[in-house]
Design a protein around this nucleic acid. Structure first.
Length: 586
RNA sequence: AGCCCCGUGGUGUAAUGGCUAGCAUAAGGGACUCUGGAUCCCUAGGCACCAGUUCGACUCUGGUCGGGGCUACCA
């Protein structure tokens, strides 16, 4: 990993101070500790980049550790996907892939130690009784009738719990702290529950499992973590994190909390993703509309773009919401400098070049990436029958429309300047353009220096290959679908979040690309090859549109101030309203 | 109501008692361009409020107002 230096933040300040005082002897050791109960998303990516990024900045280490203490929710499938996703993001934990469940024996021994010190006890109350006796935010809780059991009895009972002598829910081990504590987390929290369930990593060795609060600090301690970075909702848990470590007298990392990522138009919850996957709103955890890592990968987002985003948003303790546009901006920034260019036509319009002999094929040399001369050039075939974008032609254009119109001259990218002589119509619809080219402008160069207002992308009808192209829009119609008072997020699902175009025509060179390969269709946006692609069918995903000043100007003129080119798909909608024919099947 | 955390342009962030409050993005304008892309330039826009400490406060203290979190045998 390159250093990728970012702005300062309060966490690095804390680390600097610790280094200055020698608190951890100059060590910096973080960890990313997901629970394998779902797929990772952009919010996790922020945490991953933070933890691995800090380790890199300070020449320290960062572990990947599964916080797998609840076999009722965890699965191997998730373990596998998390490993794949973190690696894809570009991070390397070397030989430090750990599982909290590998420490269960040590945790058990420590629990015994706490019981021995009179700091933990076995409680026979039911879950309801425990909950009801916890008190409220303002009222103290009531002590359990089992709170004063002898150390010997607690030891025996705990051992019997471990040995499977009791059924689920009949007993728990609790820390003996203070049922009147103003911090609810300190009111004798549960440390172990009985769960007669096999564990995806530990197998069937255990039937009691530790709770998060008990386990997490111990995992950090065992691994020698210096700075245990987590999200804000664990702030109230820190006193407990500290209490366990102090009572045990073991190595004590510093927990630091930061604000989790919120994105406009984007729920960030495994629960919501799961529901959308299960009820078919999206096709799976890797649906390109989802902000899961796997979804973004399939959408065509690049690891470097995501890392750039994570670095730029910074980290703080204020709850905040980042504009989804900013994520797209960062993705575009990376894709712009790395993507090879191709031409492809989403909604084809036939163009016949009248003064170019039928059957004559010219090979044009076009740059692969104007941003990167070292990428070289490619060849595209030019013939007398071409395909251009329907929306690049208007029969009676407004003054600020720069593209093709009857009598207008434009450049065909890398080919010739052409002039539209006639628009052939059928049933009132423009179905073909008759154009002539200026032979002096071969390659797109203009020897006499005359200016044309625009350059269009095109493909040779005879050479182009068909493709299915999937266009994505925001999954939701409002910035905060979860925060709409009294209404369900399901009411705000965007029915137009996916549009499938099946009659697209693209450069044949795209055939050579493999699954997930990213590229730019000039003037259209960034795309990638969907894994659904087969030998017969090329399937492409639109990752993001290019910025489109014309679409913005046009939409503004039509009095649609909120219509962002990036959001509402005005462009697509309008072209179908115009009746130029939408070659899509919904 | 008790405990904890947090308030800097529209949005995301920087400043560590001392230059004109910086950067990014979004917005408006312009230049340039074989992508109406990219790039470059310009403009507008902010320290929640009130006291106090200090030569000097975004920064320290107190209060007010506002926002968030916490009552799982989840993490």
């Amino acid at each position: 990993m390159p250093p990728e230096e970012g702005p300062r933040d309060f966490i690095r300040d804390i680390i600097d101070e610790d280094n200055r005082t020698g608190r951890f002897n100059g060590r910096v050791h973080t960890r990313f500790p997901p629970e394998p109960n779902g797929y990772l998303h952009i919010g996790h990516a922020k945490s991953i980049c933070l933890n691995f990024g800090i380790a890199a900045d300070y020449k320290g280490l960062c572990n990947l550790r599964f916080d797998d203490t609840n076999p009722a929710k965890e699965e191997q499938e998730y373990i596998d996907s998390i490993i794949e996703d973190v690696r894809w993001l570009g991070f390397d934990w070397k030989d430090r892939l750990f599982y909290g469940s590998d420490y269960f024996q040590q945790m058990y021994d420590w629990a015994v130690q706490l019981i021995g010190a009179g700091k933990a006890y076995v409680d026979d109350q039911t879950a309801d009784e425990i909950s009801n006796s916890r008190g409220t935010l303002t009222l103290p809780g009531k002590e359990s009738p089992w709170r004063e059991r002898s150390v010997e009895e607690n030891l025996r009972l705990f051992e019997e719990m471990r040995d499977g002598r009791y059924e689920n829910g009949t007993k728990v081990l609790r820390a003996r702290i203070d049922m009147a504590h103003p911090n609810m987390n300190m009111r004798d929290p549960v440390m172990y529950r009985i769960l007669k369930l096999p564990h995806p990593h530990a197998g069937d060795r255990w039937c009691i499992y530790p709770m998060y609060d008990w386990a997490h600090g111990l995992e950090d301690s065992i691994e020698g973590i210096t700075h245990s970075i987590c999200t804000l909702e664990f702030e109230d848990h820190r006193p407990l994190y500290d209490w366990f470590l102090d009572e045990l007298g073991v190595y004590h990392p510093q927990q630091i909390e930061f604000a989790r990522l919120n994105l406009t138009y984007t729920p960030m919850s495994k629960r919501v993703f799961r529901e959308m996957v299960e009820n078919g709103t999206v096709s799976g955890w890797d649906d390109p509309r989802l902000p899961t890592i796997s979804g973004m990968r399939r959408r065509g987002y690049s690891p470097a773009g995501i890392r750039l985003f994570a670095r730029r948003i910074g980290v703080a303790k204020v709850n905040s919401t980042v504009d989804l546009d900013f994520l797209e901006h960062c993705i575009r920034e990376d894709l712009n400098r790395t993507s090879p260019r191709f031409m492809g036509v989403l909604r084809p319009l036939r163009v016949v070049i009248e003064n170019h002999p039928e059957g004559k094929v010219e090979e044009m040399e076009v740059a692969v990436n104007p941003e990167d001369p070292s990428a070289g050039s490619r060849k595209v075939h030019f013939t007398n029958e071409l395909l251009i974008e329907q929306e690049d032609f208007m029969e009676s254009p407004p003054r600020d429309f720069f593209r093709l119109a009857p009598g207008r001259e434009v450049r065909l990218r890398g080919a010739y300047l052409v002039t539209c002589r006639e628009a052939v119509k059928r049933d009132g619809r423009v179905v073909e353009l008759r154009c002539t080219l200026d032979p002096a402008t071969r390659g797109g160069n203009v020897p006499d220096g005359r200016k044309v207002k625009s350059t269009l992308h095109w493909v040779s009808a005879a050479h182009a290959v068909g493709a299915e192209i999937r266009l994505y829009e925001n999954l939701f119609t409002v910035e905060d679908p979860m925060g709409q008072a009294g209404r369900e997020y399901t009411e705000f699902i965007n029915p137009g979040s996916l549009e499938v175009l099946t009659d697209c025509k693209v450069e044949p060179a795209l055939r050579a690309l493999g699954p997930l390969d990213r590229f730019q269709f000039e003037r259209l946006g960034y795309f990638c090859v969907d894994p659904d692609t087969t030998a017969e069918r090329l399937v492409l995903n639109r990752t993001a549109r290019l910025k489109d000043a014309w679409a913005r100007k046009r939409d503004k003129g039509q009095g649609a101030p909120q219509a962002s080119y990036a959001r509402l798909g005005k462009e697509d909608r309008r072209s179908s309203e115009r009746g130029t024919g939408r070659s899509s099947s919904p």
